[in-house]
Design a protein around this nucleic acid. Structure first.
Lengths: 159, 159
DNA sequence: AAGGTCGGTTGCTTTACGCAACTCACACCG
DNA sequence: CGGTGTGAGTTGCGTAAAGCAACCGACCTT
């Protein structure tokens, strides 16, 4: 590929987030951290990712403030990777990915998410932070709209 | 690169989902569809993605059952891209991405999500599908755990 | 007939990824 | 004190995926 194309021009927080997690490994690494994986070779063993790419992704995650390195021994110096506050906030995103995959994809290993407060296997539903009701694409509106959409609407109105 | 590496061996619905949306363009295309973009040139104008990659991604999305093509004129034959039921279920995932980006990233264009039922600008909180309470990484447990994590725990227990 | 729209395809180039091998500093074992 | 193991990477090589620009074919408008 020619130099990874910038997507800043989109002026969208979705684009900025995709700039961080938009590849086939980064979110899997984050998933592993939530599962309790913390060390280079453990990531490598679990994901079977090539080592140079793993080193690069971990660096990127540290750079973006998702992970931080924490030393766990001095001789020889060794460190492990832990989530930052920002990294912990990726949990909700991961729950959403999980929900979608659980509903539409399948896997050989069935993993269950259990809500310990109510004791049931469950999944997430997006709720309104203000009133608690379920958020759907029918009761949400985003503003401002995209220019291309406005253009298209204008064009169709004048026909 | 050597043939895009398969991540099936991970046996995880997160991995399967990342197999679909895990690159820098796919989720942006889906975002645009939710915004009302439907046509090839509109995607291209908005995202500034190269045309060959756009053609490939749209094909992939159709193959994975996220989008479907709907003809809108006969002469010359033209079609637009619409979400399938599966595609519509990516809305929750997109809300989670939005929430994360809204909290931690920033953009030149401020976009607001308004919940029309309660009238407030809002964001999503993951709620338990069973009891409605908020899901956090403290009140959730996933089973079974990863093998590497179990190995590590065993090893630390015998020290 | 000149130019525009729409939805792509083709060709060329570059780079990021996969793979395997190597490194370096230490620790443990006999 | 030599050999093996662990941990966290780095180096080198080959290839395919992505960027860019140009082109295409069927239609429509001026």
């Amino acid at each position: 590929m020619p130099a990874k194309k910038s997507i800043e021009h989109l002026d969208c927080v979705v684009a900025s987030t995709i700039d961080i997690i938009g590849d086939r490994w980064t979110l899997l690494i984050v998933r592993d951290v939530f599962f309790g994986v913390r060390r280079f070779d453990d990531f490598q063993r679990d994901l079977q990712i090539s080592r140079n790419v793993l080193a690069d992704r971990l660096q990127q995650l540290v750079t973006h403030g998702i992970l931080k390195t924490v030393p766990y021994q001095d001789n020889p110096p060794r460190h492990e990777y832990r989530l930052t506050d920002k990294g912990r906030d990726l949990f909700d995103l991961l729950l959403a990915v999980w929900r979608f995959g659980d509903k539409w994809e399948h896997s050989n290993v069935e993993r269950v998410v259990i809500h310990e407060d109510c004791g049931h296997a469950t999944h997430m539903i997006p709720a309104c932070a203000h009133c608690g009701a379920e958020l759907t694409r029918h009761n949400l509106r985003v503003e401002p709209q995209l220019d291309v959409v406005l253009d298209r609407q204008r064009q169709e109105a004048t026909q």
